[in-house]
Design a protein around this nucleic acid. Sequence first.
DNA 1: TCAATTAACATACGGGGCGTATGAGAATGC
DNA 2: GCATTCTCATACGCCCCGTATGTTAATTGA
Lengths: 198, 198
Amino acid sequence: MRRSRNEMIAETRAKLLAAGRKAFGARGYAESSMDDFTGEAGLTRGALYHHFGDKKGLFAAVVAEIDSEMTARLCEISSMASTRWQGFVDENIGYVLMALEPELQRIMFRDGPAVLGDPSQWPNANGCIAAVAQSLETLKQEGVIVDIDPEAGARLINAASSSAAQWIANAENPDAIAKRAVESFRTFLEGLRANKVD
Amino acid sequence: MRRSRNEMIAETRAKLLAAGRKAFGARGYAESSMDDFTGEAGLTRGALYHHFGDKKGLFAAVVAEIDSEMTARLCEISSMASTRWQGFVDENIGYVLMALEPELQRIMFRDGPAVLGDPSQWPNANGCIAAVAQSLETLKQEGVIVDIDPEAGARLINAASSSAAQWIANAENPDAIAKRAVESFRTFLEGLRANKVD
DNA sequence: TCAATTAACATACGGGGCGTATGAGAATGC
DNA sequence: GCATTCTCATACGCCCCGTATGTTAATTGA
């Protein structure tokens, strides 16, 4: 045999994950038939129930995967800025831009809360909040921003970001709305600075 | 006949609306069987389809009803404050507190976006955003806050409020989280003031 | 006033999707 | 080398939704 058993198993898992992600992202959770997208992957629902327990289990795995990707992208962005404050702003604007992607938006912001409940309680999907909280913590210690609870602040900022993204993505004229949303978002972030003068 | 025909019709509509609201709020949209909650109201799915088109139609009507109630409560709160700024803060804190109610939270924040799509696009359910935008507009004209797009700002603030509410409501220790969330929320709002000195 | 029409529901039917129970086949362990 | 366990497919039944149809009662119009 050319490929080991474990490789085969990992492959079917990956196939299911990819098929589910594609279907959930394109059609939405409720409208995605397990028979359909497992069939497209050359498998059946039996494999899905074996690996993920149920439909919701697969969805949770997809959410975890996307969250880890998002977190990685955010860290990448913030690490490239010249100043911490700039990195923080870039990180948040980057979050908004990321959240514009239809697949991500549908899975993480539309269906996610309905299927898995409050995002705050998702077990393996709070990397983004943690990343922003970390940034806030550092900025606070350096005296760049006012005194604020890092985690709480991160949650509020994340909520605002995703809201802005949804507003933009679903608008008739996304470009115009994007300008207004991002501009207002910057204004909010500026309000956190301890000293508004650069 | 004691009661007119129109009264009977309005009553069945109201019964369906109330039954749907109760079921959606308690069990969630997907878990609410139309047969069940129409049956509890002494009716059948036939009446529901006649009055609301489909399950989603009833849900939209419930959302509109709740939004109008929330808007009224917000206006009530903001009108009672001594200063505009204080009214604005009270209004937003009030929004957070309102959003703690399980029924409201489940219908408006959890299931709503999944069933009806982006809340920004809900036809009869943006009263709260409009109310906050109106407050921002006035505050801006009076020079109390920095220059910011009222609608955009209102959306960001609303998103932050509802996020805070969900965080609080789903926390293990709601009281402790509430303090942190509300305090951070105040800090954010303070960041909008043109002059941070009272 | 009396038929004809329409509104307001209830009932009946069909289809699809989910979860589970069962089965088969292959790799692993002793 | 045989039993076992893991991996996945198949088969079954239930629930739920949407629609088509039926029924009763009120309204309209001449």
